[in-house]
Amino acid sequence: MRILVCVKRVPAVGSRINVTDDGQQVDTAHLGFTTSPHEECAVEEAAQIVEQLDGDEHAVVVLTLGPEASTEQLRYAASVGGNEFALVMAEGGLDWDPQRTAVAITSAVRELEAAGGQFDLILFGNESADGGNFQVGIRVAHALGRPIVNGIKGIDPHERGFTARRETDAGYEVYELEAPCALGVKEGINLPRYPTMKGRLASRKAQIQVLDCTADVDAGGQSRVRLHRPPERASTTVQLGDSAAAAPAVVDLLDELGVL
């Protein structure tokens, strides 16, 4: 089985996100980077599926589109179960719009499949942590003519394809997809492993294939003007107490709000 996982490098933000003076991107001067959380879980899920299979012809291929520094996220994936790695260079340092991103990833998938064979399953994160455009995976899957269901928090492979579970408010829905297909996964599908020392060492040697499929990709119809922080919520905190003796004041508040 061959599984492709598409991941995105995003800033590891703290308690406040600052924007550069030109309003074009998150100020990352003092920030590290990480893999967008849904996608980190997608890598783990692919690794777990492949590890359960007999034989050694299986592979987890990890693809990212981003600046050259995104190799850091590919190497991380190598330390937690990824086997093959490809980078589509999106220079300029800025986020691409979702249509353009989807076109470039679609050509990258075609190029990878032409060389290594069809992917039985393509995993995306439900949405990226930063842009949150909720569409790239769906656009790519549609362009490739493969079914996709988003919001997946459970995957069971079987002979003909995959059973997928999608969380709802009250429980979950079950979907049955035949391979080849795609799924958009959400954090909570698993608890991603930490890299082992051996994994870290091996990841340094991982070969990263650089794909050039961005030359003819036009920008889509959505274009960034600027990023900015929302107005702070007016926060005069009313302190109801500094011990368990505050309980009556809390219950008064609950009563006032009509939830008692």
């Binding site: 107490g241 500094d242 368990a244 003796a245």
Partner: peptide, 20 residues
Amino acid sequence: KAGYAVIADLHEVVPAICDE
């Protein structure tokens, strides 16, 4: 950021709220 706060150990405050 909260509108209301109790600055104390939740392990003491939460049972006290339940009792109240």
